[in-house]
């Protein structure tokens, strides 16, 4: 089956504006978009530039705008797109360096602000710091994040406001704030609860829909909002307040991901 690929092209040294170039690829049944891009690069046009690494939806390198939605090129079968033409562009909202390659510095700066590592001031135990299955269930879904940027890049607030931390960084904050072993909750809440943090989320749900790993980004941000509010107002730990910690049921994330997978965005 021959499929037309409209690939975003932009060379900052030669092009005044970006353009799309059309390639035709003979697609076999299970070929992914990344396979097709490789075919284009290896056999048709070696100047096409894009990032890729693991081909297993683990490294998060090949996040792209494919037929109007952010997806991992290595995880998207061309046949599943059910389209005679496949449009491939760089992740929206990120500065474009060349063709399909975007600048990740602002993205990782926001991630770094959330201190994306376990902080625990207490002396380490003899073995590992342990969690109960219930404690882990609060962060299980958030740990699936592979930092591909599909969520932040699909958020209209990020497009408008470059200062907004975005769903990826906030999910990272969530992952450690709700981690029972972490003790730097207050530091992270000062960042996540700032005006450029959780409060800029308008529950558009693009980030949840477009996450290729099924991370419930929007839901995580809503849980963070409640947590931040209770922390700021000094209600944490009192028995007057209902428990705001989310516990996702088994399979819920996958179900939402699949439901979002067939949705389209205007």
């Amino acid at each position: 089956m021959e499929v037309r690929f409209r690939v975003h092209r932009y060379d900052p040294e030669e092009d005044a504006t970006a353009r799309y170039q059309v390639y035709t690829v003979d697609v076999d049944g299970d070929m992914t978009v990344l396979d097709c891009l490789n075919q284009i690069k290896w056999y048709q046009d070696g100047t096409v530039t894009f990032r890729r690494s693991c081909r297993s939806a683990i490294c998060g390198s090949c996040g792209m705008l494919i037929n109007g939605r952010n997806r991992l090129a290595c995880n998207t079968r061309v046949a599943d797109l059910e389209a005679a033409e496949v449009s491939v562009g760089p992740l929206p909202g990120f500065p474009i360096l060349r063709d399909l390659v975007v600048d990740w510095d602002p993205f990782f700066a926001k991630d770094a602000a959330m201190k994306p590592y376990l902080i625990n001031d207490t002396p380490p135990p003899d073995k590992e710091r342990r969690q109960s299955p219930e404690e882990y269930s609060k962060i299980d879904n958030a740990t699936l994040c592979i930092m591909c940027g599909c969520c932040s890049s699909s958020c209209p607030v990020v497009w408008n406001n470059g200062q907004y931390y975005g769903p990826a960084a906030l999910t990272k904050a969530y992952r450690f704030i709700f981690d029972s072993r972490d003790t730097a909750t207050r530091e992270r809440i000062d960042m996540a609860g700032s005006e450029e943090g959780t409060w800029r989320c308008h529950t558009i749900f693009n980030c949840t829909t477009d996450c290729p790993k099924g991370v419930l980004n929007t839901q995580n941000i809503q849980a963070l909002k409640r947590k931040v509010m209770l922390e700021k107002l000094g209600f944490t730990g009192t028995k007057l307040v209902f428990n705001v910690d989310p516990i996702y049921k088994e399979g819920e994330a996958q179900h939402e991901h699949e439901a979002g997978g067939i949705a389209t965005r205007a």
Binding site: K110, A113, Q163, Y165, I189, D190, S194, E195, K232, L233
Partner: peptide, 23 residues
């Protein structure tokens, strides 16, 4: 972070304002 040198983004606005308006 990885191969990217990232400067943490500073907090620019007083953290409590958003909390009250949200509540």
């Amino acid at each position: 972070v990885g191969s990217v040198t990232a400067q943490p983004q500073p907090v620019r606005v007083a953290p409590k304002t958003g909390t009250y308006s949200w509540l």
